[in-house]
């Protein structure tokens, strides 16, 4: 298996950067807030260390809510969106002000719905642009809440996945939405099986762009 060369890493970072830029423009229009972006960080890590590296990047003392969504298509993988636990009310307020997000639900369910909704919108917008830049399209599975207001240490990976050498591509970016400062981390995980496809697409992108 060929490696994540500096060039590919740069290309991936740039593609994420551009696609998140477009995604935030749609989000900004939909939610009427400014979405501040940070430089994405791309890394190749062993799958067995996913939790550890999430712990390092988020910190184990912070209570967070994690929305997970799988995508399929030419590449498969999953996206985790980690939002600080206390952001629930801000999320509801922001969606409500944005454009009539007001399902009749009890308070705790409403908070979960707001998290799912933000997760789905952010993930869908970012991955949609990402796929478009690579000339493909993706399908998405039902998003799920993996963790509710708890430390990332409580997130347990599937122990049946014993292939400790398998690699994952971890892309991290943080964002901040609006004056209410709803911030979060977005992690995209590609399983090793899809590296070939991804690298092929990246090389094609590099060839066209440089």
């Amino acid at each position: 298996m060929e490696a994540l060369t500096e060039l590919r890493q740069g290309a991936l970072q740039e593609i994420i950067n551009i696609s998140f830029g477009r995604a935030s423009a749609s989000l900004a229009e939909l939610l009427k807030v400014y979405v501040a972006l940070n430089v994405p960080n791309v890394q190749e890590i062993p799958q067995s260390q996913i939790i550890e590296s999430l712990e390092q990047r988020i910190g184990i003392d912070t209570d967070i809510t994690v929305v997970q969504q799988s995508f399929t298509g030419d590449f498969e993988g999953e996206v985790l969106l980690a939002i600080p636990a206390n952001a629930g009310l801000r999320a509801i307020k922001m969606l409500g002000q944005g454009r009539g997000f007001a399902p009749a639900l009890p308070a705790t369910d409403l908070e979960m719905e707001a998290f799912l909704e933000i997760g789905n919108i952010v993930i869908g917008a970012c991955m949609g642009q990402f796929a478009e830049l690579l000339n493909t399209s993706l399908s998405y599975e039902v998003p799920d809440i993996l963790l509710t207001k708890s430390s990332i240490t409580n997130l347990r990976r599937d122990e049946s996945n014993k292939d400790v050498k398998a690699l994952a591509l971890l892309i991290k970016t943080d964002f901040q939405m609006g004056d209410e400062a709803l911030s979060g981390f977005l992690f995209i995980l590609f399983g090793q099986r899809w590296f070939d496809m991804l690298y092929l697409a990246l090389d094609k992108f590099i060839e066209e762009m440089t």
Binding site: L30, F101, P103, V142
Partner: peptide, 23 residues
Amino acid sequence: KGIPWKVQTVFRLGNFAFFSQKL
């Protein structure tokens, strides 16, 4: 049930949207 909002986001962002049985 919040359907107009969800339909709106699909038309505007072109993303998938979901409606959770759990909630």
